[in-house]
């Protein structure tokens, strides 16, 4: 085995190996996500975030416009403070409503943004004023049962 043949094979090997890593990054993972694009941050306060996770999508009209960057608890108001990283191409008016939604019954939890009519837009670091918390199914069921029981008693 002479030197140039070895070099050739090693070159082929390293090339397809690196190609495999690139394939994993682009085709299997989603490196081409919004993270690399310029973005700005918005804050939203929720009473209850349910099963919201870091990096969960932020959608407007079903289109992904950003990701959840951080979740923390406000120690004074006991509200969850969620920081959203929104792609700079999308601007939202000041009276935008942010709600925590679930895709399907058991699907992933995401944040839905509904733009309002205010001509002024939210700036970087701005706070989404109107929010709707996650619907906790257990609470919903217990409420339903309670209503049923109350209704039955009155009859």
């Amino acid at each position: 085995m002479n030197r140039s043949t070895i070099d050739l094979w090693v070159g082929i090997f390293v090339t397809i190996g690196l190609g495999a890593i690139v394939f994993l990054a682009l085709k299997v993972g989603n490196l081409t996500s919004l993270d690399t694009k310029p973005a700005y941050r918005l804050e939203a306060h929720f009473d209850n975030i349910g099963g919201l996770k870091l990096r969960a999508p932020v959608k407007a009209a079903g289109v992904i416009v950003g990701r959840v960057e951080s979740v923390r608890l406000d120690p004074k108001s006991y509200e969850a403070v969620v920081t959203l990283r929104i792609d700079e191409g999308y601007q939202f008016s000041k009276d935008t409503i942010a709600s925590i939604l679930t895709s399907g019954l058991l699907g992933e939890v995401y944040i839905g943004l509904e733009a309002g009519g205010d001509p002024q837009n939210l700036a970087d670091g701005g706070r989404v004023g109107k929010t709707q918390s996650a619907i906790v199914i257990e609470k919903l069921i217990s409420q339903f049962l309670f209503d049923k029981a109350a209704g039955g008693g009155a009859k």
């Binding site: 390293v14 397809i16 190996g17 690196l18 495999a20 890593i21 394939f23 994993l24 299997v28």
Partner: peptide, 9 residues
């Protein structure tokens, strides 16, 4: 690492 990536692909 190259072999592992190829294996996954």
């Amino acid at each position: 690492p190259l072999l592992a990536a190829l294996f996954s692909v």
